[in-house]
Design a protein around this nucleic acid. Sequence first.
DNA 1: CGGAGTGTTAGTCG
DNA 2: CCGACTAACACTCC
Length: 282
Amino acid sequence: MPELPEVETIARRLNTVLPTKVITELTVFHPKSFKGHETEILNHEIKKVSRKAKIIIIELSNQLFLLIHLKMTGQLIYSHGQTRIGGGHPTADWVSDLPSKHTRIQLSFADGSQLFFNDQRLFGWIKVADDEYLRKELVKFGPDIIDPSLTAETLFNHFKKKSVAIKVALLDPSIVAGLGNIYVCDALNVAQIDPFRPSKSLSLDEVKKVLEASRQTVEKGIELGGTTFDGMYVDIDGFAGKYQGVVRVYGRENKPCLNCGNLITKKKLAGRGTYYCPSCQT
DNA sequence: CGGAGTGTTAGTCG
DNA sequence: CCGACTAACACTCC
């Protein structure tokens, strides 16, 4: 279920356990999920785990990187004895025996611990990358929405060239990275902007409001450990996020808008469910 | 059975 | 060549 807050949460958690682990075994259950050669990673040590956009970056001791994209249904689960650390799409795999039916990649470490990459829909991937490939991969992305150096002026200059809906422009990772469907719907409700408005119709002041609302929304998501829309798993410590408890519009069709009390509408925009308040988002 | 799902990109059309 | 839009990736759940 990853948007930026979930990916950030997973990266932070894994960074508390993976550094110093030495990879001793790679098992590829589904070849589509892995791009690289096992000889590039075996017997190398993990230095650190970080994130850019929605890509998790695992730095190895041999100057190579493991890049992981969870897409819609990816999970990463670290397992050591009774301990499990990770997160991602909420399914029973969180608590079932691993590897599970959806395990695509398994890394085993010298101390007997393991990292499982599960991905039901097979959209996600793990790639081995060198410095140059990593740079190439990251240059496709605009600045993270939470990057303090991103200004409203920069966004405004992108938006004024586009006639697509503001929501679509905000979801375009080449303009700004890290906004997904849940948080963009909520952010536009905070900013009280109609998601269907052409991005070029927004004034600089409105773009400022949108940027602030987006940052606030995504940062709140990170604080709360992301979003978990699945009641079964919300109590699993360290896996489920809590943002769904404060969600403003996403998934709240026909419920009252937290700004004005009018009812939230769901429409389709660019193929995605779009929740908003037609009364106060204008 | 049909539709929808938290992401991204390849392909088509104008 | 560009922007805008759609379908596709593959699977599960409702």
